[in-house]
């Protein structure tokens, strides 16, 4: 089963994302900041990561840089999922190695569409 790690400091967003992803038959895990997400990845590298940008302790951008240094860190598909919605921020995320980008708020249609884009649906 394809594993998706949801990284967001909002418990509500994590809950909504997990519900949608589990409906789409993904196995999910969650972390509330980038540092905890790195721990999760060290224990078990997921197939994809839904990644918030602005989080305490370690933000999404820094997490992505650290992730790519890990063994198997190139494996997960990265979908930024954030309230940052201006062109420069989106371009920066894509340039940093994101595979797709979701602007909050999102719903099941958007999540499914983005997962199709990266070949997971």
């Amino acid at each position: 089963m394809t594993q998706v790690l949801v990284v967001d400091d909002s418990a509500i967003i994590r809950k909504i994302a997990r519900r949608i992803l589990e409906d789409l038959r993904f196995e999910t895990a969650e972390a509330e900041d980038g540092a905890r997400a790195l721990d999760c990845c060290a224990a078990s590298m997921p197939d994809a990561i839904f990644l918030d940008w602005n989080m305490p302790v370690m933000d999404g951008y820094e997490f992505l840089r650290e992730l790519r240094k890990m063994p198997d860190g190139a494996k997960p598909k990265i979908v930024f999922c954030t309230t940052e919605n201006d062109v420069a921020q989106i371009a920066r995320a894509m340039h940093a190695g994101a595979d797709e980008y979701i602007m909050k708020p999102f719903d099941r249609h958007i999540v499914q569409s983005k997962l199709e884009e990266i070949g997971l649906v």
């Binding site: 919605n85 201006d86 062109v87 989106i90 371009a91 894509m94 994101a98 797709e100 980008y101 979701i102 602007m103 999102f106 719903d107 249609h109 958007i110 569409s113 983005k114 884009e117």
Partner: peptide, 20 residues
């Protein structure tokens, strides 16, 4: 709308062909 550009449209094409 933000909702419409996120359905079916890959982000690289959003950046290439749209402006806020």
């Amino acid at each position: 709308s933000q909702f419409e550009v996120q359905r079916g449209l890959p982000t690289p094409l959003l950046l290439r062909h749209f402006q806020r």
